[in-house]
Every structure is written in C-alpha cells, then in structure tokens.
Amino acid sequence: MEMSNDFDRLLFFEHTRRTAEAIYAKNPHDAENLTKWGGVLLELSQFQNGPESKQMVQDAIDKLEKALVVDPRKHDALWCLGNAYTSSAFLIPELEEAKVYFDKAAQYFEQAVELEPTNELYQKSLEVTSKAPGLHVEIHKHGLGEQVMAGGPSSSSTSTKQQSTKKSKSSDLKYDIFGWIILAVGIVAWVGFAKSNMPPPPPPR
C-alpha cells in the first residue's frame, strides 16, 4: 500500500512538473507557476538518489528565486525557499557548512511570516528551523546522512523495514525531519494544482 501511495505521489508531482514547464514555456514571468514548479521539484527530490536529489533541490531554488524576481513579496515562494535551503542543509554532512543554509532558510521563513503573520504553517516552519542544526547532528550521528544521500525517505522505506530496531528509530527521526519540510510543500503544490484550470479527476466508482 505504501509503495502504491509513493508511486501515486510520484506520478502526481511529475505531472505537475510537466504542466509547470509547459506554462513556463508560454509565460516565463508567471510567479505563481514558478513557485509551484519550485515546490514540486522539492517534492520530487525526495525520490532521487543523493547527487540527483541535491541537483533537483538546487533547481527548485533557482525557480523560486526567479519567482521572487517577478514578485518579491510572494510569501509562499519565500516559504518554499526556506524549505529548499533546509533540505539542502540536511544533505550536507558538515554542520558548519549546513548552518549557512539553515541561516538562509530562517531568513526566508522570517520574511514569509512578516508578509503573512497569521499563517500558522509559516510560523511553525520558523519555529522548527531553530531546532534544525540539532536535528542535523542527530541525523549524521545515527548515520542517516549516508541514507539520505543514498535515497530519500520514500525510496529507502522498504529496506529500512528489514533493518534493526535502532535503524528503524533512526528512520523515524528522518521521517520527522522531512515530514514538516516535504509534506508541507506538498500541500502547497496540491493547492496550487487544484487552483489551476485542469478539471478535477472523476470520483472513484
């Protein structure tokens, strides 16, 4: 069931990415589309292996920065950028180097909160990002850094079930960390997708 859910998510995000690419080809200055594209690239990065995942996160950052060039006050693009820099930081083994990315993430979260002070998701992201360096230490202390670089939570879920209880606990920690980053971005991508002109899928029979 879990595999099916992951596959469905992958199909959905890949379809959203292709839609965003097509819209960009017609209008490269659509900030909403660039934000959606960046968010979905961030989602898809979790299905990739280490180097591919890092490259996809960087692509997401590029798209989101373009969105902010078009509309500097686009709070959801700022928030997604915070998530992208957080994701990048967790992929970096050295804490000092990772802290640079965590600091950037915090700055973007702060800007998003300033523009939308009542948004609880933005507030939560800003609150949790202060704990991110400590989580980074836990990840790499338990050897999860290598797992993250080898593949995202989705691709490694089957193998982790066959490992020891200690590694299962480590896997739970990884899910906790990526949960607020990636699933939250998924909500944004889903909402953006739902707002597009495409008709909703027919109800199951």
Results as ranks from 00 to 15, higher is better:
E114G: 05
Q163H: 02
A67K: 12
V113M: 06
E32F: 07
M3K: 07
H142T: 06
R73W: 08
W79A: 11
H75R: 12
W190V: 11
I177H: 02
S53P: 00
E96M: 00
E138T: 02
D8G: 12
L81G: 11
Q48Y: 04
K167H: 05
R205P: 05
F12C: 11
G192K: 06
H15Q: 14
V185F: 02
Q147W: 14
G143P: 10
Y85F: 12
V57C: 02
P202V: 09
R17W: 08
E21K: 12
A184W: 06
L126W: 02
D71Q: 11
W180H: 11
V185C: 10
L144S: 03
A184E: 15
A89L: 00
H75L: 04
E94D: 04
S196P: 04
W37M: 15
A105Y: 06
K131M: 10
K124A: 13
I92P: 01
L121C: 08
K63F: 14
L183K: 11
Q111S: 13
G145V: 06
N27I: 01
S45H: 11
Q162M: 08
R18G: 06
W190R: 11
A25Q: 09
L183C: 05
T19I: 05
Q46N: 10
F102E: 01
A67E: 15
A31G: 12
V128F: 15
K195E: 10
F13M: 13
I181F: 15
E21Y: 11
L44D: 09
C80G: 06
L81Q: 12
F193C: 10
A150I: 04
M56R: 08
F102M: 03
V113P: 03
S170R: 01
Y101T: 00
P93V: 00
A31P: 12
P203I: 06
V128N: 15
S164P: 01
F109W: 03
L41H: 05
L68E: 14
L42F: 10
T118S: 13
S196T: 08
Y175W: 13
S168G: 03
A150G: 02
V57M: 03
T118P: 02
V148S: 00
E43S: 10
Y24K: 12
E116D: 13
M198A: 10
S154R: 13
T16A: 15
W37F: 15
E116Y: 04
P93I: 00
N49P: 00
L68K: 15
Q123P: 08
E114T: 10
K166R: 04
A25F: 04
L91G: 01
Q55N: 09
V137A: 03
L173C: 02
M149V: 09
L173I: 01
P93T: 00
S168P: 00
P204C: 07
I181G: 00
M3F: 09
Q48P: 02
S159M: 07
M198Y: 07
G82V: 13
P28A: 09
L64E: 15
E138F: 01
H15V: 10
A98H: 01
Y24W: 11
